[in-house]
Design a protein around this nucleic acid. Sequence first.
DNA 1: TCAATACTTAAAGGATGATTGAAATATGGA
DNA 2: TCCATATTTCAATCATCCTTTAAGTATTGA
Lengths: 118, 118
Amino acid sequence: MDQRQALGAFAALSQETRLQIVRLLVVAGPDGMAAGALAEKVEVSPSNISFHLKELEHSGLIAAQRQSRSIIYTANYEALGGLVRFLMEDCCSGHPEICAPAAEVAACCAPTAKENLQ
Amino acid sequence: MDQRQALGAFAALSQETRLQIVRLLVVAGPDGMAAGALAEKVEVSPSNISFHLKELEHSGLIAAQRQSRSIIYTANYEALGGLVRFLMEDCCSGHPEICAPAAEVAACCAPTAKENLQ
DNA sequence: TCAATACTTAAAGGATGATTGAAATATGGA
DNA sequence: TCCATATTTCAATCATCCTTTAAGTATTGA
């Protein structure tokens, strides 16, 4: 994740509907959610959700795949993790305070995190 | 950090000049940097940097304090940490993949992180 | 108190982003 | 093939954000 990508990701997340979408997809997991289901959950029109889904897809935070008549959207965990990493990147060069809350949250899934560390 | 604050923080970070400012201040540490020094580093006009500094301050990501003729800006580590935490909050409810990169970075300053965990 | 330094504020513009409704595309079943 | 479903695209409008220039405030030293 470079600065250009991070800027795009921050822009994508700076809109209420889009932030809600991402959070719903993170919770939904690998199964994802259809555009229509998302529209219902966040209570916006089909055309509006489509607009925001395009933006999120373009930013790389989510991915789309057609499944019959529906289009299923899923969170891109790699991109989200990359963004967290980007935000924390500089903190170790002298100021670990930023990392503390991250470490706190990361601790809850330490086993997996540890695995991915190797 | 609630959703309203996160939205503001993401909006603040979604602009190149502001993202640069925050990253400079994170590296600068508790000493911070004067508005003029920041303007020189990111190569924008005084009035322009002032505009962006106001936005960042309003979002809570940075703080200001006058010191003689200069105004010194510092990163708000608590807010930045809170944002990281917000981004990762849902990942543990089933999908720890997001936390992995965070844990990786957090590991480098583990001692401090551990202290703050209690 | 006057002038210089360091910033901020205000106003005006141009650019970008969001919302809406209507029309278009893709898929599956009768 | 025809219709219904699910979603996207397009065009128009409105709102918001960014940049610039000019004027204003605060602080220091002569």
